[in-house]
Design a protein around this nucleic acid. Structure first.
Length: 575
RNA sequence: CGGGGAGUAGCGCAGUCUGGCAGCGCACCUGCCUUGGGAGCAGGGGGUCGAAGGUUCAAAUCCUUUCUCCCCGACCA
């Protein structure tokens, strides 16, 4: 590709509305341009990277036995009404009517469509297992799109749906996808973790997220430093601490704590460590149910654990008025002792070992000290309610400690069970001619998001550093002096030779000063650069620059070509 | 949806408080010059100041309404 005939509109300055590095660099490198909030043009360079990644995904999906197809991006309302999600999905579903006033939506996901297809076409156990996938543009009318391709409203996604005769066959399909995902992200040269995850609104029995590690990641994840356990913090299990030694229970005492509302304030004021206090939180389902949650003062509530334990659809902190009605006290002095209205009390496992703790007295500016479980207050249920923190004991092995990371969720695999097949009545006949419900799995990969995550993980102050497998071009040939016929002729010949070897080359033939070319080639992240100048050519040599390390090799032309070939070859080779 | 901020040339911004010629840097076009890390000189093009209404002799600037975009929260590939 000739740079001068291509289209790479780079920017020197960072557009002010881009916050994260990948967004800034994709704009500056001329990969994308915004059309509307969360909706982007993919410019030639950006599209090349996306296509590269799509092809890796495609190869690995095919290899795992999945079958490619393509479903429409516009979907009829009837299907969504049938699954119940027309009302449940809310405003994120972009709806509109056609000229006949029939209702449609832009597909945010394709469970309904695929299940509808499959229930018509898959009738027999002999047709399974089967796994269909597509690479499609989805639309979710997010309340707040942000971070460029990382969270757009319109985005490209690979989604796959497996159908099996029973749970254990579905587990096998799931494992295949899990392995395919491992290969996909390894092939891209990304640092990532597969972690246990909450299934969220998609539902199903279990799931794993694939997280590209990056400081700017929106998710917190943990992994064990000694076994294979890894999980999203939303899901990560906390192992309760050892129970306290038997200590003598001291008498319950009321103490004045004027204006001491936070755990830190109260602990400070009383001269106690915060793990000797109990944090009391009141939550509501939004439909009138209330629950009290107790945690050790230094622990943080995991709302998802609480929500899942209650089987509520929604969970939010109770309002000041609701709290006042239950406890008679303003926020800051809540506790489990002496409630005006009885509500369920759920406590974190960490509460069990505590003795002589501090709790709010349900009275403004007053706390109790030496409160003790059973003697002073009762708990309806003990469950794991808290967020794990770095250094916590691993829930799976004896010696391990949990390490914390930030991650960008680029893939998610779900065991769906029969949730959708039941709702849409997708059945097959088994070997005995009996009608059975299909078992499903679904598997997503954010295509644009993965490219953005790769940039988030691989950049420096000069710009993007693409891993070769998803780089828009493997190599650039930078001709330094375009007026020098010798340089241009030699550069052109090298360009042809490299292309003939199957290397994807961007030939920077622009009539620009060297500095401009170096800056642009660095910015757009071309992993290997061959620099051809008149001085080097006088010795029959050219430079090979490795973008990632900055290393520069001064080599005879043929050696340089061979070296590039070898570097590209080894990075694309994966077994 | 709640809270915060911003809309002035393709990009980055000043000007708005205190109304009075619409500006600066980069980019773009022409010429000269220059060629190993975003050069220099000279000349040039480009604006309904987000939109609508109002106040005023006069509005980018003051008032009202509205649209868009960005940031923080809940959702998600």
């Amino acid at each position: 590709m000739l740079y001068s005939r291509y289209f790479i509109p780079t920017l020197k300055e960072t557009p002010s509305d881009a916050e994260v590095v990948s967004h800034q660099l994709m704009l500056r490198a001329g990969m994308i341009r915004k059309l509307a909030a969360g909706i982007y043009n993919y410019l030639p360079l950006g599209l090349r990277s996306i296509r590269k990644f799509e092809n890796i995904v495609r190869e690995e999906m095919n290899r795992a036995g999945a079958i490619e197809m393509l479903m429409p991006s516009v979907q009829p309302a009837e299907l969504w009404q049938e699954s119940g999600r027309w009302t449940f999905y809310g405003k994120e579903l972009l709806r509109f009517k056609d000229r006949k006033e029939s209702e449609f939506c832009m597909g945010p996901t394709h469970e309904e469509v695929i299940t509808d297809l499959v229930r018509r076409e898959i009738k027999s156990y002999r047709q399974m297992p089967v796994n269909f996938y597509q690479i499609q543009t989805k639309f979710r009318d997010e309340i707040r799109p942000r971070f460029g391709l990382m969270r757009g409203r319109e985005f490209i996604m690979k989604d796959a749906y497996s159908f099996d005769v029973d749970g254990s066959a579905a587990d096998e399909s799931y494992d295949k996808m899990y392995q395919a995902y491992m290969r996909i992200f390894e092939r891209c040269g990304l640092k990532f973790r597969a972690v246990e995850a909450d299934t969220g609104s998609i539902g199903g029995s279990s799931s794993h997220e694939f997280m590209v590690l990056a400081e700017s990641g929106e998710d917190a994840i943990v992994s064990c430093d000694s076994c294979h356990y890894a999980a999203n913090v939303e899901k990560a299990e906390a192992r309760p601490d050892q129970l306290d030694d038997k200590v003598a229970q001291l008498p319950l005492e009321k103490v004045a704590t004027p204006d001491k509302k936070t755990i830190a304030d109260v602990a400070d004021f009383l001269g106690l460590p915060s793990d000797r206090t109990i944090k009391t939180l009141i939550y509501t389902s939004g439909t009138g149910d209330l629950v009290m949650a107790l945690l050790r003062g230094d622990h943080e509530l995991n709302e998802i654990k609480l929500k899942n334990s209650l089987c509520w659809e929604e969970i939010q902190m109770a309002s000041e008025e609701q709290i006042m009605a239950v406890t008679g006290s303003p926020i800051g002095f809540l506790g489990p002792i002496g409630l005006k209205v009885k509500i369920p009390i759920i406590a974190d496992l960490g509460i069990q070992g505590l003795a002589n703790t501090v709790v709010g007295a349900n009275e403004k500016d007053v706390h109790f000290t030496n409160a003790n479980l059973e003697r002073d207050f009762q708990v309806d249920r003990f469950i794991d309610l808290r967020n794990v923190v770095s250094g916590d004991a691993c829930p799976r092995c004896e010696q391990g400690k949990l390490e914390m990371w930030r991650g960008i969720e680029v893939g998610h695999v779900f065991k769906l069970g029969t949730k959708y097949s039941k709702a849409l009545n997708a059945t097959y006949l088994d070997a005995d001619g009996k009608e059975q419900i299909l078992f499903m799995g679904c598997y997503g990969i954010g295509i644009g998001r993965t490219v953005a995550a790769a940039i988030e993980q691989n950049h420096d102050k000069n710009g993007i550093i693409f891993p070769i497998p998803i780089a828009p071009f493997h190599c650039s040939v930078v001709a330094l002096n375009t007026k020098d016929k010798g340089v241009m002729a030699e550069a052109e010949e090298i360009y042809f030779k490299l292309e003939k070897c199957g290397i994807e080359v961007l030939f920077d033939d622009r009539d620009e000063r060297p500095g401009v070319k170096f800056k642009d080639n660095d910015l757009i992240g071309i992993p290997l650069q061959m620099v051809i100048g008149s001085k080097g050519l006088a010795e029959g040599k050219v430079e090979v620059k490795i973008r990632k390390t900055g290393e520069v090799l001064f080599l005879p032309i043929e050696d340089a070509i061979a070296h590039i070939q070898q570097l590209v070859g080894s990075s694309l080779n994966y077994e």
